[in-house]
């Protein structure tokens, strides 16, 4: 299979202020991501993995270095271009789901499909994550795992080129976590969506093509898995 370069990241740095202190979140990161690939970003909290993901997703801007998504240099893009990039290319999954509490599961997905270029139907997206029976439930009526699966359905409903997941199982117990990871894995396999998953749980690393270890704002190690495990085979 011909593999395209999706992300090319060079010398990426990020410094931000938190109150009185300067935090060096990224201190020169180089990384490449290929189409259809599933990578896991692994590292303790404060290692810079969320910052990296946010910059890749166009949610945050770098202090230095370059991030190129296909032909597009994100590090030079303005606000409007980043919005357009997020709208048409990226699907996000957050640790705390970030569903809109006043909208039902279907409507939470529709919020995205309404502005996307070639979306699937919200019902279809929800059926991929196994929530066909819960379309009209409000977030408060869903369990944590179900909420996260709505969030995944919302992320994939626009048929994104990349799926970025920030600790998608962080707030879930392991059994529910596996259901969520299965959904992510299935999308990666069936739709060929380039996927990056953040976790601080090294057991999840088994499902990745490559595992990128971050510590203290650097990539300390990149490991390729010759054989990927299915989420069912993971346990923690």
């Amino acid at each position: 299979m011909q593999r395209d370069l999706v992300f090319s990241i060079q010398g990426l740095t990020k410094v931000y202020r938190m109150g009185e202190v300067e935090v060096h979140a990224l201190r020169g990161v180089d990384l490449e991501l290929w189409s259809g690939e599933l990578i896991v970003l692994l590292g303790p909290s404060g290692s810079g993995k969320s910052t990296l993901l946010n910059i890749m997703g166009g949610l945050d801007v770098a202090t230095g270095g370059r991030v190129v998504y296909r032909e597009r240099e994100l590090t030079r893009a303005g606000e409007a271009e980043l919005t357009e990039y997020r709208r048409f290319h990226v699907g996000f999954v957050f640790q705390f789901y970030n569903l809109i509490p006043s909208l039902t599961a279907k409507e939470n997905v529709a919020v995205v499909t309404e502005i996307a270029a070639k979306p699937m139907r919200p019902e279809d997206a929800l059926s991929i994550v196994g929530l066909s029976e819960r379309l009209d439930h409000f977030p408060a009526q869903l369990s944590g795992g179900e909420q996260q699966r709505v969030a995944i359905a919302r992320a994939i409903s626009k048929n994104p080129d990349v799926l970025l997941c920030d600790e998608p199982t962080g707030a879930l117990d392991s059994e529910t976590g596996i259901v969520v990871l299965e959904a992510i894995d299935r999308i990666n396999r069936e739709l060929g969506t380039t996927t990056a998953v953040i976790t601080h749980n090294s057991d999840i690393a088994g499902m990745a093509d490559r595992v990128v270890h971050l510590s203290n704002g650097h990539i300390s190690e990149v490991i390729s898995n010759p054989v990927k495990k299915t989420p069912r085979e993971l346990h923690w």
Partner: peptide, 8 residues
């Protein structure tokens, strides 16, 4: 979240 999904 809305912004992450491309709302300007």
């Amino acid at each position: 979240a809305l912004k992450a999904f491309g709302y300007g």
